[in-house]
């Protein structure tokens, strides 16, 4: 499978990554090679094999329903590019 420039442009837009027009061709080649490599992995017969989700045999650990965190308003807002009182402030995004 190979990607064209339009697809790369679209992926970049979805990821909010700015890609200059002249780099699209090159990136399309690189991404296509990555996909080719994945396609190679797809050749391995895995029918009937449970997907491996972790290299260690482990299950999802669960936490008790207790409030153990929060109350960090200052810390949470500390790195905000802009804040307004207790809120984060961002350019208006209303529909």
């Amino acid at each position: 499978m190979s990607l064209d420039k339009a697809t790369v442009r679209s992926i970049a837009a979805l990821a909010r990554v700015h890609v200059p027009e002249e780099e699209l061709e090159h990136l399309a080649g690189e991404l296509s090679r990555i996909l080719g490599w994945i396609e190679q992995l797809n050749e391995v017969a895995t029918a009937g094999v449970e997907p491996m989700t972790s290299v260690v045999e482990m299950r999802l650990r669960m936490r008790a329903d207790e409030v153990t965190d929060g109350g960090l308003q200052e810390e949470v807002l500390a790195d905000a590019p802009e804040r307004a009182g207790p809120f984060f402030a961002v350019p208006k995004v209303v529909e």
Partner: peptide, 16 residues
């Protein structure tokens, strides 16, 4: 582990 209560002071029930 942050609380879920409705109507709290903004950004006080936020964990990292």
């Amino acid at each position: 582990g942050a609380a879920t209560d409705f109507g709290a002071e903004p950004n006080t029930q936020v964990s990292m």
